[in-house]
Design a protein around this nucleic acid. Sequence first.
DNA 1: CTCAATTCGATTGAGTACAATTTAATTATA
DNA 2: TATAATTAAATTGTACTCAATCGAATTGAG
Lengths: 142, 142
Amino acid sequence: MAEKKYDALKLENQLCFPLYACSRQIIKKYHPFLDELNLTYTQYLAMMVLWERHTISVKELGNQLFLDSGTLTPLLKSMEKKGYLTRKRSGEDERILLVSITEAGETLRDRAVDVPAKMTGCVNLSPEEAAELYRLLYKILS
Amino acid sequence: MAEKKYDALKLENQLCFPLYACSRQIIKKYHPFLDELNLTYTQYLAMMVLWERHTISVKELGNQLFLDSGTLTPLLKSMEKKGYLTRKRSGEDERILLVSITEAGETLRDRAVDVPAKMTGCVNLSPEEAAELYRLLYKILS
DNA sequence: CTCAATTCGATTGAGTACAATTTAATTATA
DNA sequence: TATAATTAAATTGTACTCAATCGAATTGAG
């Protein structure tokens, strides 16, 4: 008779493991494309928010990306050094730090616009499967 | 008319972002349970492999977890210090480092066996949805 | 008002991740 | 059989990721 006592602890019975592995494998595939833009994957995500919002607080950016100030503070300082954004305290409330995209940051958008299309070939799911995966992931996140 | 030129660059149109966010959010939920075992999430994954395999090379462990020696070497040294495993070069081939579970590592299995059940409540998917998510993730990984 | 509670960001420290390089051991080939 | 090529870990350097803590600014209950 089979020993089932520990089955739940087998790697192949985990849901989080393939999530974690998948996430890292796909991020790796972004590397060659993002290197050309002088961005890491996390920085690329921050730029996506800035391209839509232009100015945003660290707090709100963290809410959108599920990241805290411990991650964002050094990330944003590094991006400021690259010239893609500026960091300035809000006049209304000095606790709030406002991050704003620069002209150089805006320019980057045109060079980044092809990245998503280049990546689609890297995930071999049908459009329906991709849509279903998307739905399930956001259901977990909500 | 709407500006569609940059739609592909919107955060909400990414597939990798929710994957990455989901992975981190779920791993966070493991923390209270894994703290009791004195394990991090990555260490917990390594233990899952060792509970099944007892002895495995760093290379093979890396293949199973999609991690390289740069990550595994310090991870395994730390786990060795905790007494959960031993590290010894293979006699057959001195390049190979064999990682073996200890008695303390085996004992940990009984304390870990409830972790998966405790976690299931943290992901609000139906069993069918979880199964579909699992299938899609492994399709990407293959 | 006023001081306690809250909020926001920065800092610190531990632990990954991973590309690139190095070193030692093994294997293959001229 | 020398040596070139390959392989396995370790090391190095850069960049997250997050828990915990801190300090300054703001808010709110009495």
